[in-house]
Nucleic acid binder design. Sequence first.
DNA 1: CAACTTCGTCAGCAGTGGCTAACGTTAGCG
DNA 2: CGCTAACGTTAGCCACTGCTGACGAAGTTG
Lengths: 119, 119
Amino acid sequence: MVLSGPPDRLDDALRALAEPRRRAILRLVADQELPAGQIAAAFEVSRTAVSQHLTVLKTVGLLDERREGTRRLYRTRPEGLAELREFLDDLWGSALDTARGLVEEQAGLPAREEVRDAG
Amino acid sequence: MVLSGPPDRLDDALRALAEPRRRAILRLVADQELPAGQIAAAFEVSRTAVSQHLTVLKTVGLLDERREGTRRLYRTRPEGLAELREFLDDLWGSALDTARGLVEEQAGLPAREEVRDAG
DNA sequence: CAACTTCGTCAGCAGTGGCTAACGTTAGCG
DNA sequence: CGCTAACGTTAGCCACTGCTGACGAAGTTG
């Protein structure tokens, strides 16, 4: 299927971050703005591969590009992580509530033998 | 190449979350504990597919499984998101600092440069 | 203009991963 | 015991994607 539904920012960001090399790139240019060539030099894959990663990251809004002559300077764009944080916080909150609910339920019921991890 | 590096919790969690269906499952059982069959019924793919997703989520620590007779009850396990949050917060912080730095630089400082290798 | 630098894009290949159908496993019931 | 319910597991198919090498585009210099 080549069908691609409506553009989903969260899905895009998550898919982009699922690739270890892309996370490394994001970390690299989170502290410093760098030209594509220097970013590529930091890894052991071809410049082409890094360029494709940069394209992906830029497309999904996780990277900012600025041109200077023939060079293209990149730096990570924190706003792109907003929705992802929202998703995580939401999931986190709900899951914690559910966990609390189960604990209370367990506390009020007659002996329910079970070893639940304490994390 | 079948090279598999050391188990990386962050990578595992991120790869698991990159799949839309798995995120939907996590959301579904974030609010309430549910048996596999009921989770599968909530989607239009086969029970097999959902079962595989459940296995993945459980393996990477994002899901908690509890057996009751022939049934298996699942619920989202928020602790599994800890490292992911850490990663995001770290990246977010660094990127924001860099953004601030660039603004200051633009306000009057000469250009910056250098930086080589990266992790 | 040509030559060179910096970088993106295209084609094709190989590995990954989600999916279905068929089968195996475990628990409860009569 | 057989029978059923509720699951997980396996084999294989097919789309997706990260990779390399070749090529093209754009900007700078002489």
